[in-house]
């Protein structure tokens, strides 16, 4: 699904050949994942890039439009976006499939994950909104100094296809290439390092995991506490203790590995799973009322 989504939202293939980007009206609509709008194939706008653009603009005090997209995507999907609708997440997933010795949880792993909130607050919100030039226009700090997705999907293909851009490459590109190489290299050994520690979009969506329509449901009565779900989770979450953990990217590995079907993922309105048969709903409601 991740590959298909990446192809669908980056379908302007001519751009890769001619070294230019799509300029149609669809570029005014944000896609849910971290998908650089300067990627030659991109048909939509990156929400993090757009948020910085709005905050950096002279005339906008509060970015209602992009915040609206983030609220809507967050309320619908939570971090399901990270698991299934993000091109850079997909790249990290593919790299992790390379056979190698894998790094699991380490000391301060959980603490380091809060770094992405700092990135969101400082590089995406505060600096673009507060540091402005003489004309009153700010800079997209995260895009400029960190975003490896922009380097991979926009910088590299554009420089390869466009000689005039190659002529003006300097220190910032080298810096961003170093970040990209570091993250891609780490991704072979450590599951989704960018998503875990640095991604500001993941940080924003994580706040919705407890309050999104797409959720993970845990049935205590069906659980045998075998630990298969916790063992299967590459994000280091124990779904039996915290099915709505902010680190859960809703990949569904725990659901697939549960031998007793104690975990279920889907879209819920209240306790009702959208698309569930009536008998399933009744069983679930009975289970809940018995517990209460």
């Amino acid at each position: 699904m991740q590959g298909a989504w990446t192809v669908v939202t980056n379908g302007y293939l001519v751009g890769f050949v001619k070294g230019r980007i799509w300029q149609g009206d669809s570029k005014s609509v944000c896609v849910p994942g971290l998908n650089c709008y300067s990627c030659p194939g991109a048909l939509g706008a990156c929400p993090i890039g757009s948020l910085q653009a709005e905050l950096a603009a002279r005339e906008i005090k509060f970015p209602l439009y992009v915040t609206g997209f983030l609220l809507a995507f967050g309320a619908l999907f939570g971090r399901f976006v990270c698991g299934f609708l993000c091109p850079f997440g997909w790249v990290q997933d593919l790299l992790y499939k390379i056979p190698s010795r894998k790094i699991g949880a380490f000391k301060h792993d959980r603490l380091l994950r809060y770094l992405k909130f700092v990135v969101l607050a400082v590089l995406v919100v505060l600096l673009p909104a507060l540091v402005k030039n003489a004309a009153g226009v700010g800079t997209p700090w995260f895009c400029k100094w960190v975003c490896p997705s922009g380097t991979l999907f926009a910088g590299i293909p554009l420089l390869l296809a466009n000689p005039s851009l190659r002529a003006v490459v300097g220190f910032i590109f080298s810096w961003k290439m170093a970040i990209l190489i570091l993250i891609l290299g780490l991704s072979v050994f450590l599951y989704r390092p960018f998503c875990k520690y640095l991604c500001p979009l993941g940080a924003a969506y994580s706040l919705f995991n407890k309050a999104s329509f797409y959720r993970l449901k845990f049935s205590e009565s069906a659980c045998t506490h075998c630990g298969a779900c916790k063992h299967a989770c590459k994000m280091g979450v124990d779904p039996t203790k915290a099915p709505d953990d902010i680190e859960c990217i809703r990949c569904g590995d725990c659901v697939k590995n549960c031998p007793t079907k104690a975990l279920e993922a889907g879209f819920y309105v209240g306790k009702r799973k959208i698309g569930a048969k009536k008998t399933e709903i009744e069983t679930e409601l009975n289970e809940t009322s018995m517990k209460e």
């Binding site: 980007i21 706008a45 910088g155």
Partner: peptide, 15 residues
């Protein structure tokens, strides 16, 4: 604002 940013090559984004 979003369209003007997204429809032009963002030099910062590509480094």
């Amino acid at each position: 604002v979003v369209l003007s940013r997204a429809a032009n090559i963002c030099l910062e984004c590509i480094g």
